[in-house]
Design a protein around this nucleic acid. Sequence first.
DNA 1: CCTGCTAGAATTGGATCCAATCAACATTGG
DNA 2: CCAATGTTGATTGGATCCAATTCTAGCAGG
Lengths: 255, 255
Amino acid sequence: MSQDPAARQSSGHQSSEHPSPEHRTDGLLASLVAAEGARAKTATEFVEATLKKGILTGALPAGMALRQEELAREFGLSRMPIREALRQLEAQALIDFLPHKGAVVTEISLDDALDIFAIRRALETAAFALSIANLRPDDLSRAIETIAEIDAEADPARLGHLNRQFHMTLYACAGRPKLLALIEVQLASYDRYLRFHLSARGREHMAQDEHRAMVEAAAARDVATAVAILERHIDTAAEALKQFYAAREAISGGA
Amino acid sequence: MSQDPAARQSSGHQSSEHPSPEHRTDGLLASLVAAEGARAKTATEFVEATLKKGILTGALPAGMALRQEELAREFGLSRMPIREALRQLEAQALIDFLPHKGAVVTEISLDDALDIFAIRRALETAAFALSIANLRPDDLSRAIETIAEIDAEADPARLGHLNRQFHMTLYACAGRPKLLALIEVQLASYDRYLRFHLSARGREHMAQDEHRAMVEAAAARDVATAVAILERHIDTAAEALKQFYAAREAISGGA
DNA sequence: CCTGCTAGAATTGGATCCAATCAACATTGG
DNA sequence: CCAATGTTGATTGGATCCAATTCTAGCAGG
């Protein structure tokens, strides 16, 4: 049964029943389940990837309770792969797992975002500094290419992916796989903020100018300048998010 | 059944059977199962904590295959809590989980250790810089106290814990919980190296002089000096480990 | 003698079932 | 009328069972 996860929901023993009105995740997950495609070896991996994407893109909003049985119905599976997937998501700090109470999508606050920015600043500057000397011309051209793709892309979810791709391309030659893996996790976590951040302030906040400046400094092998730009890049993003939260607070507080 | 994990192995329906000669983890885990105590709400948490300690202390060496059924026998549980615990350990990069093949304790190499040092250097310097201004006198005295405890402690496993405690005390006032949590994970990962590193080179490599210098610089609120000492502290540890691996390579290569 | 195939065992992935726990609600005594 | 308590429902934690996959050993054929 694990050879074709994409066809799982059509295994057909509980597809058309239970049109009960209390299933809140149905419409939200249906598209994700279909979009995830057939790239997954086991059902657990499939569920994990789908839920992860759902959380990062915001389809599963913060604070939402994830009922095991309900998810099992949505995916057309038993509760077991759901449970194992939830365990792994908990280890990635995407959900909170309270014993006997269930799983809840972790809340995101400004403080959490500032934590992520602090972590990113520390890790990415280190990786960038290590990587610059080893960057090949095709790495740089790929980075420039990604900048163009970002300009052309409209979908916020894809934008997050492209932004991640751009940054990772510049760090890829650091020769520190665990460091890079950790950065990728943090960048993925940032997607949760990037999404509603973009929707509120527009795509200008991708700061493409700084992206280009990073590539230029890297091409010139100017580590100090490159790192300085990256630091400012992250700091301005943090500042923008701070203002966004302040504005939102003013609205909800004044109303 | 989840009210007393410490008494789990004596639930008694499969205790004295199966003294088969092929169970390799029996002696290794027995002490750990007993030592973990009763502090765990669910069986899964209990198993996870026990295995984690086993891996970090080296009782479960790198490359060891973790058979689910065998572990279930050891713990006196079914395979299910084992499976969920293994999933979480995989997310912490302590084991590799190959579909249909099983779980293996992740190998540790010099490159991996250098990765951890690079990550620690980036994260800890950032946290230390943020924390210094907020450190209270009792934080500093607690750090000094921990230095003394390190001098008095003989057990390598406890040494790792104390070393972690010392560092975390100095970073605790950074006001960035996620950053601190990440550092703690990395420091715990480092325990795997610290252990055989200590056994080979002696406790002098805890570098207590640098520990004291860090506290002094922090007390003087001298961020630049403190960060510089910390960087050197980590770099010298990395260098020591490099030499250790080189020496081991020379032995095994020459024999 | 070596190579490729096949059948079996070993092991994991997934489903179903039962027990323990928690929350809410009704009930009863003060 | 309020508070403490028992009870019931929902939900998760854990156990057992079955299916799918991988590895291995043995055998036939070249």
